[in-house]
Design a protein around this nucleic acid. Structure first.
Lengths: 217, 217
DNA sequence: ATCAACGGATAGTTTCACTCTCCATTCCGC
DNA sequence: GCGGAATGGAGAGTGAAACTATCCGTTGAT
């Protein structure tokens, strides 16, 4: 498969593919001559992975590059690669203040309460803490006495997702290493997007029931 | 409250606040002189809303502006404003191909199956269809015969979120109109982010159980 | 009285994700 | 076997986005 074929197989322009090659998002094809290379299925999958990460995960090209580096490093065991990729999927934001710190301790307590085996420095912890900080600003949770408010919901989420996650991870088919890592990475983001969309549909439905024409107040 | 006070209350620089004023993200304060204006709580909340939309929702400033316009237009009933805001919260992407169309018909079927009262042109439908297209590319669902694969999961999601959404919308406190719209808007994104983070923690846990040291294969 | 802060406007900066243009090969169809 | 298109590689250029900086004349606090 030549670059033009890869382009039409993925929908990305040749110029974009060259750019991805330069940035290391796309591994080089097998050179058949000084100005000729052969691409295969792995390149098609890779471009799709990049697009999924960018479109659905809102990752920057640099962040995608670090995900890809973890996927490609064959010395890294599959679970570790998933961890690295997961960290890269959390946008890095300046986190300075102490509200983040107190939110973070709530997160750590949640993780311990549900016996989740998660690295102490997993970025997902900070991601949740960030969300809590924003929620606190709108009075959706109280960081000081969380038990008193709606954040008990999170324990329900945690239990539920724990079961579903087992299913999802079990669903990952045996295959070659990079295929499995790609699968878990893309599954993380794509199912997230799908869940969010379904939740929005449900929210609009609930809003219509409370505020809509049929229940105008 | 002067602009410097607003700045330190929100963490945004004075220059940034001026920029938000220019772009219409922030309503003007009450002018007390030709070069003096007074800001209040509504401005603080507004800046927080903008930051939540940008940080957690990955919305562009232009998209935030359209959300804000819906929030501020007092002629729009609360439910309609929420719909407009929801549409603005879906990143607009070029959607041309027929894979999107077939994914979209699956979405519409799901909506009908669960009796969700959602506008036919709600952007959340396209958001879910986009996610399905990406999933299909990785073989996570089969757009042709969806019943045969894991997409039955979606019906479970839909039922669950429908219940939770009712709770969440019921949880919105009575208040003035813009406060309620802000509440639903920020709730949409912020709970999404929290759920995603919790799910990632659960996925890392599940990955560790299947692929980690303790279960190395 | 002075000097920092203010609003308003315009211009400048940085980053990002491409996109364009060259070039010297190489391939493909006739 | 020849001519035009495609290729890899590298550099420069582009346009949008999200601020940031500077300037100005006015005002408020000390």
């Amino acid at each position: 498969m030549k670059i033009a074929a890869l382009s039409s197989a993925t929908g990305a322009s040749v110029a974009t593919l060259k750019y991805y090659l330069r940035e290391g998002l796309l591994h080089p094809g097998v050179a058949t001559a000084v100005n000729q290379a052969d691409y295969d299925d792995s390149h098609v999958r890779r471009v799709r992975l990049v697009r999924a990460l960018v479109d659905l995960g809102h990752l920057s090209i640099a962040e995608v590059a670090s995900v890809v580096a973890a996927v490609d490093d064959v010395d890294v065991p599959i679970h570790d690669a998933f961890g690295i990729a997961q960290d890269a999927m959390v946008p890095d934001r300046p986190r300075d203040d102490d509200r983040h710190a107190s939110a973070r301790s709530l997160v750590d307590a949640l993780v311990a309460r549900h016996d989740l085996r998660v690295r102490p420095d997993a970025e997902a912890r900070n991601m949740l803490a960030d969300a809590l900080v924003h929620m606190a600003e709108f009075g959706l949770v109280d960081l000081a006495s969380p038990a008193a408010d709606g954040s008990a919901q999170f324990d329900a989420y945690a239990e539920l997702f724990k079961q579903w996650a087992d299913h999802e991870i079990a669903f990952v088919p045996d295959g070659d290493r990079s295929e499995m890592v790609e699968y878990t990475v893309v599954g993380t983001l794509v199912v997230e997007a799908a869940m969010s969309a379904i939740r929005r549909l449900a929210l609009e439905d609930a809003s219509e029931r409370r505020f809509g024409d049929s229940g105008r107040r």
